[in-house]
Design a protein around this nucleic acid. Structure first.
Lengths: 344, 344
DNA sequence: TTGATTATTGGTAACGATATCATGAAGAGT
DNA sequence: ACTCTTCATGATATCGTTACCAATAATCAA
């Protein structure tokens, strides 16, 4: 009935069947499909017709077991795709990878080191040409080059202790410092902090930037107003509410990532809905931008960087490694951040 | 130096090398790795030690070329990961897939039918066990079951014309109708519309629900206030500004998806920043929720459904198909939507 | 016309893993 | 002691593809 694909057996056709139909050897089919060097045009046409007729699709897995044949896959492990930050990151990786004819296998670690280890092993088992990982912290011996058997690895956003590989990170310290500075400049002196667990790379660095800014202003962080380790919006909202309801509540909050910023704003929304006056609501610094920050009821200072560009950068580093010297020294690129007020 | 992985050659070890080290045949290694039936415990231990020692990782691609051996891969093609809606969708698919021991290969079509075709072909070439696709519209002969050679396909969010396969869609018509109704109920009579191209499945259905609600109220859509085909936030913002600046500007806007809703709100933010009074700003219906909708300066009616659940549902249907009868009739599930006001 | 070169094609083997069958050893039942 | 199982193991062949080499035909220089 259809114009093609007459053989509707459920098995996929192979070179052999194409060869049979075209009246040539499998080798000639293979050659035709790989550029047609040393195959007569007329024969090539016969092969192409047979491919069309059968709906033949080369088995990339079989192809990749031959030595020297790349798999065309790049493994990407992030902590959480639901976070639009990482969605954008993955998109950036895909931008570059698809330009280079590679596909992405995506996995999420959920900040779990054991799952990360398993994911990496699986990626390697699938013969990925390279790995891009947002490491989740914890033990990281599974990331050592000798464990990866020559598969290049690029870390993104965070580095991993004791692992000497290419990495793209963000100017966490500077960004946090300047973001905090912006709050101090407009007179805030009691600033709460909502952030990642201190054991994570970015968590540590952003907190460090935050403290540096306070110290420079002769202030110190009030431990009662510091909450670490919230991993999703609802945990962040709870922590924010808690801080805002405490005695001597801070007049501003520093949210060290997207999830904590959104959670803090949800908490503020709740308090407003319960009748707390707008004037008592804190200002906010958000490390990582989020959509519509300019429409928030409280002033928001955004410490922004382009997650998609971070992904592009990571992928670019990976391909540079794949094209070039696998043993060249590891490179760490620090991407700049932009601090801006959500309101003009 | 490390406690394991002594052989630091860059090539990956194979069963053969493990077998040699353990003093057994490759077959015994394979058996051990697949559950250890019919292998003495002591021998299994030797094999496991050798695996550890060499850092052996089974080559899944080689494995999958044997007939009957599944690849463990599910192909997921969405239009755009940067849209958090699809990020959540992908996460939902991954939830179920990883439970079932499968990995996801992710690709983005960018609403481009040719790219979709190529992506699907590539996925099939990689021997995916199944496909989950948000179809981008346009020709869809490449989605016909006979072209897919028995690889199960589940469509999500949208259906494709003339393609009779499993699908999970959303109650677009009912959601749009009830969302519009909510605006009519509070007295709006001039409602603008920002939506997908009318050729897309959801675009058509949501517009249909919108019009049904108007017709039921004895009204009609004003063509000057209908804008279709905006694919990203900035295009949506331009369209929204245009509508809002036009004579007889509507008092409310219906945004048929997340991107258009955010774009409309950005436009509103701009206008407010330029001094337009809040009272002249339109109310909004957003089909698809977005973060912090409750903090928006204008009232927002959200027509919500759970994208992650949509992904889970699609994956569940795929596995049901993989486990069960490949020839059972296609099933279409319509997920309900919830209409709510962003403010209490 | 002849020998040499080149272009086109196919045969064979190999990639890594495993299903199948064959082999041998150990134990059970008579 | 002897057959009948059962268990543990290995040899071989195979999956789909392509590198390598051999074989043939076509072209060219002298």
């Amino acid at each position: 009935m259809g114009t093609q694909g007459q053989n509707d057996s459920s098995r996929q056709p192979t070179v052999k069947e194409v060869a049979l139909l075209a009246g040539v050897s499998p080798m000639t089919v293979s050659r035709t499909l790989n550029g047609g060097k040393s195959v007569r045009l007329e024969v090539q046409q016969r092969v192409i017709d047979a491919v069309q007729m059968l709906g033949y699709q080369r088995n990339e897995n079989a192809r990749s077991i031959r030595p020297g044949q790349p798999s065309g896959l790049v493994g990407v492990a992030i902590t959480n795709i639901a976070n639009p930050y990482y969605g954008n990151f993955a998109l950036g990786v895909e931008d570059i990878a698809s330009q280079r004819g590679r596909r992405i296998i995506l996995g999420t670690t959920g900040e779990d080191s054991a799952r990360e280890r398993q994911l990496i092993a699986d990626f390697i088992g699938r013969q990925v040409e390279g790995l891009i990982l947002v490491p989740s912290g914890g033990r990281s011996d599974h990331l050592q080059p000798n464990r990866l058997r020559g598969t290049p690895l690029v870390l993104a956003s965070r580095m991993a202790a004791g692992v000497d590989v290419d990495a793209v990170i963000v100017d966490d310290i500077g960004g946090a410092l300047r973001g905090t500075q912006a709050l101090l400049d407009v007179g805030h002196t009691r600033i709460g902090y909502l952030g990642n667990d201190a054991s994570t790379f970015t968590g540590m660095r952003r907190f460090q930037g935050f403290r540096q800014a306070l110290v420079a202003a002769g202030l110190a962080a009030d431990p009662r107003h510091v909450r670490l380790g919230q991993n999703d919006i609802s945990e962040a909202a709870l922590a924010a509410t808690d801080v805002l309801m405490s005695p001597d509540a801070p007049t501003a909050l520093f949210a060290a990532n997207n999830r904590n910023a959104v959670g803090a704003l949800k908490a503020i929304g709740e308090l407003l809905a319960h009748g707390r006056p707008l004037e008592t609501m804190p200002a906010l610094v958000s490390f990582d931008s989020f959509e519509l920050s300019e429409l928030m009821p409280v002033p928001v200072v955004v410490v922004d960087h382009d997650a998609r560009e971070l992904g592009r950068q990571a992928a670019t580093m990976l391909f540079r490694r794949l094209d070039g010297d696998p043993d060249a020294p590891a490179v760490v690129v620090e991407m700049p951040t932009v601090v801006r007020n959500s309101r003009r």
